[in-house]
Write a protein that binds this DNA or RNA. Sequence first.
DNA 1: GCCGTTTTCGGCCCGACTGTTTTCAGTCG
Length: 544
Amino acid sequence: MERARAAEALEEIATLLAVSGENPFKVRAFENAARTVARLEGFEEVLARGEIGSVKGIGKAIEEVLTELSATGTSTALEELRAAVPAGVLDLTRIPGLGPKKASALWKELGVTTLGELEYAIRENRLAALPGFGPKTQEKLATGLSFVASASGRHRLPAAWARAEAARALLLSAAADAGVTRVEVAGDLRRSLETVDRVVLAVACGRPERLPVVPPAENAPPVEVVAGPAARFGNLLLEATGSGEHLAALRERGGAAVDAPASEESEIYARLGLSFVPPELREGRGEVGAAAAGALPRLLQPGDLQGLFHLHTTFSDGKATLEETFRRAVELGYAYVGITDHSPAAAYAGGLGPERVREQWAAIEALRPRFPSLTVFRGTEADILPDGSIDYGDDFLAGFDFVIASVHSAFHLPRAQQTERIVRAVRNPRVTLLGHATGRLLLSRGGFDVDMHAVLEAAGAAGCGVEINASPYRLDLDWRLGAAARAAGVFTSINPDAHDLPGLLDVRWGVGIARKAGFPPEAVLNASPAASVAARLGELRARR
DNA sequence: GCCGTTTTCGGCCCGACTGTTTTCAGTCG
């Protein structure tokens, strides 16, 4: 057992003990021992001679740990602690200002066990509800988090697009000097993947050697610039956009046609006898065959969205009031909103009991006259309980215009049970939409173990929709399930899951995912005008 | 948990700082 590794093990025990709420002096004993071991010249020899117990600060218990570590590579005490405390809770303590007590509170009170979950909890403004936490703490932790998380190498879309826009502006600023005529975002970002490891920009440019270098930035993906003459910009952009599988499929149809100069991508597709394949579909999943057969789906356009569902307000864990939300929706040109605060089971999020729901309905009625152009649908994001029932009674649920049902607890049920649970929920005739279907948090938490194909088939058969949660932290339903969803006849809705006013703009990311998933506008609930949505919700309610 | 001992239990560094709370808890160094 190397000295450094032994010290690390003791340090880990100390942190785990602290998070477990152990006697601080016991914690310090392990910390002190870790430091002692780390500095102990000839540690391995001392240990081998059985004299480690005579070193000051190392008593019987720690000697035992070190002996066991040396013999087996691990220690019973350490393993037991690891089993009791989720691994990610230790990561939380890496954030400045977040010690064992606060980490423990986050874990036990909010169920936060990873950095990503913490980020999301902050985003949903859930920390302020915890004793000892306040706005300043939340802000400080948000800052610390972005620092810690920046090491991961992948990036969510808002950071990546911000970086892309900045780099694009920089390159365009050199237009005259370097002969730049076009700069387009390419790569995974153009294909609307849910996370990216870099930003790729394709540049049409006469003097590439004069292009400015895009300096690296903290917490931002690296920028890769590919440049070439305008006469070959189509080839350049196609190549830089990918995917590798899509390009391979194109070459199979005609390498010469792919490589002959083209100023536009569309020329290349035309030469190959294909309809233009939108970048979002270029994943090598049969789109080239579909393009040859003229069978590509007609994709949703960003301007198609006419209203927004899944909006949280100050009634539960949102930061914006009803009125502010309405005003912003109107400013953004939307014709309707569907308000969905949390239900009682989401106590951490200030879920509304029936009384508060009625207060909210009254508040909505009072505001309607002031927003004559806006149709307001009264909804809820209710919890799917572990048995698949919804945490409002059936009669009460019937009072909403629509119901989003989401899983916020018991993420770790066995697959069959989790599937049964969610299937039961989508078959509930009072449920309009399944919320964030897999519960994943991008770059931090995978979805729960569930047979999504079974869920989609049940939803399609029952007439229940499945939202595309457009939060850049979720983008759930996964676009890879789009074909299965469409085959099952499931409709969707691009939902921002907004917890503040800027969050309304998150639908942008959801549109990219819906396009990637191949949803045509008619399969997207909020791509319809208010009157037809009202009629549609009426029909769905009539199932009840 | 470790230490020391006037030896088997009581003390272990603790103050500054911050943010929350309204007298204090948690973190840091």
